[in-house]
Amino acid sequence: MLLTIVFTCDLDSRRMSNDKVAQNNMVSPSSSISLMSSGDEEVARLRDQIRLLSTEMTTLRRDYNGLKERMEADKLSFSEHLFSLTLPTVTLADTPYLNEPVELNGVNVILYGAVITNSEGVQQLAFWCGMRSSSSFDATLISKCAIVGYSNAAYNTGPFTEIIRLKEESSVMSRRHIAGVWNNIKANLTNINVKFTIKLVRPFNPSTISFDDGDNYVTITLGDETLQVNTPYVSEWSNFLRAYFSSDMKERAAGVYPIEDCPITDFREMLDVIYPTSKPIDIWNVEKMLELADRFIMPMLTRKCEVFLNDGYKHNFTEIQLLIMADKYNLFLTRTNVLEKLISTTLLRSKIIKTEGYGTLSYEMKRAVDARYVELDVQEKP
Rank of each mutant, 00 (worst) to 15 (best):
A93R: 03
Y155W: 14
N337R: 02
R295L: 15
N205P: 00
L227V: 04
T161Y: 08
F267M: 01
R252G: 07
Y244F: 14
G39P: 01
S171A: 06
Y217Q: 06
D261H: 03
E100L: 10
N65K: 08
Y244Q: 02
L292C: 12
I352Q: 00
E291P: 02
T277Y: 15
D212C: 04
Q379C: 15
P88N: 04
A371G: 06
A44Q: 11
I352Y: 00
V181S: 05
I163Y: 10
F7I: 12
A73N: 14
N156R: 09
L125C: 11
I353Q: 10
W128R: 10
S28P: 07
A154E: 08
A114R: 15
Q49C: 12
A126H: 09
N230Q: 13
K304T: 06
T91G: 00
I320G: 06
G214N: 14
S246Y: 13
N330G: 02
S171Y: 14
S278V: 08
I192A: 02
T231G: 00
V107R: 03
R268Q: 15
V107T: 05
I220T: 04
N18V: 05
L67N: 15
D248S: 15
M365Q: 11
E169R: 13
E269S: 15
R268E: 12
L35D: 10
N24I: 09
F267G: 02
P159D: 03
N152A: 03
L271H: 12
E100R: 07
M71D: 15
N99E: 02
K366D: 05
D138T: 08
D12M: 09
C305Q: 09
L60I: 11
N285Q: 09
S84P: 06
F160Q: 05
V115K: 01
T334R: 02
S344L: 13
L339Y: 00
S34P: 03
S134F: 07
R303P: 00
N152T: 03
E236D: 13
L92P: 00
S31W: 07
L85T: 01
S278L: 03
L141V: 05
S13C: 12
L111D: 00
Y358H: 08
N108D: 06
Q123H: 12
T226S: 07
M16C: 07
E168K: 11
R51A: 15
T318M: 07
E41T: 13
I110P: 02
I353D: 04
G255V: 10
V90K: 09
Y275V: 03
I178P: 03
E306V: 02
R61T: 08
I297D: 12
S79G: 09
I185E: 13
A154G: 02
C129H: 02
E236H: 14
R295Y: 09
E162K: 05
T55S: 15
K328F: 06
L200R: 01
E100D: 11
L2H: 03
M57G: 06
F296L: 11
P258N: 11
V43T: 07
P280E: 14
